[in-house]
Simulated scan of single mutants.
Amino acid sequence: MEEATFSGTEPINGTDVYYEYYKHESSRETLVLLHGFLSSTFSFRRLIPLLKTEFNVVSVDLPPFGKSGKSSQFVYSYENLAKTVIQLSEKLSFEKVTLVGHSMGGQIVLNVAHSKPELVDQAVLLCSSGYMKKMKPHLIFSSYIPFFYLYVKLYLQRSGVKQNLKNVVHDHSMIDDEMLYGYLSPFLEDDIFRALTRMIRDREGDLPPAALKRIETPCLLIWGEHDRVVPLHIGKRLNNDLKNSKLVVLKDTGHLVPEERPEDVLQHIKRFMKTAESV
Rank of each mutant, 00 (worst) to 15 (best):
A195D: 00
N167A: 10
S159P: 02
E260N: 11
I200P: 01
H172W: 11
H268F: 15
V161M: 13
P208H: 03
I222K: 04
S142M: 14
N167V: 00
L232T: 03
G254N: 07
K166W: 12
E260D: 12
D206F: 01
L212N: 06
R261A: 08
V249H: 05
M199L: 12
L232S: 02
V169K: 09
I234F: 06
V265R: 04
D264F: 11
Y149Q: 06
N244L: 10
F148V: 01
K270C: 07
R158Q: 11
V230Q: 04
S143R: 09
V152L: 10
L221C: 01
P218F: 10
E260I: 04
D202M: 06
H170V: 03
G224F: 02
N244S: 12
K246P: 03
I192S: 00
V169H: 06
R214D: 13
K243A: 14
S185V: 06
L150G: 01
D206Y: 01
G254P: 02
D264A: 14
Y155F: 12
D241M: 07
C219D: 13
F148E: 05
F193Q: 01
S142N: 12
I192C: 00
S245P: 05
W223V: 05
N244E: 13
S159K: 14
R158W: 11
I234D: 11
F147T: 03
Q157D: 15
G235M: 02
E263G: 08
E225K: 10
P209H: 03
D177Q: 15
R237F: 01
L196H: 07
A211H: 08
E189W: 02
K270Y: 07
K251C: 03
I222V: 12
T197D: 00
T253K: 09
V169F: 09
R214V: 04
H226Q: 13
F187V: 00
K236V: 01
I234E: 10
P146S: 14
D177N: 13
A210Q: 12
D202E: 06
K236M: 10
V257E: 11
K243C: 14
H268E: 15
N244V: 13
V168C: 06
N164H: 12
V168Y: 03
W223D: 08
L220Y: 02
L238N: 03
P186C: 09
I234H: 07
L180C: 08
T253V: 07
Y155I: 07
D191V: 00
E260S: 11
H255M: 05
D177L: 11
M174D: 08
Y144P: 01
L266T: 05
R158I: 14
V152E: 11
E216D: 14
G182Y: 05
L266V: 05
K243E: 10
R194W: 04
G182M: 12
V257Y: 09
L188V: 04
I192Y: 00
Y183M: 12
N167S: 12
R201F: 08
L180T: 05
L188I: 04
L188E: 07
Y149C: 07
N164D: 14
D241Y: 01
I175M: 04
R237Y: 04
Y155E: 15
E260F: 07
P231E: 06
R198V: 11
A211G: 09
Q163D: 14
Q267R: 13
L221K: 00
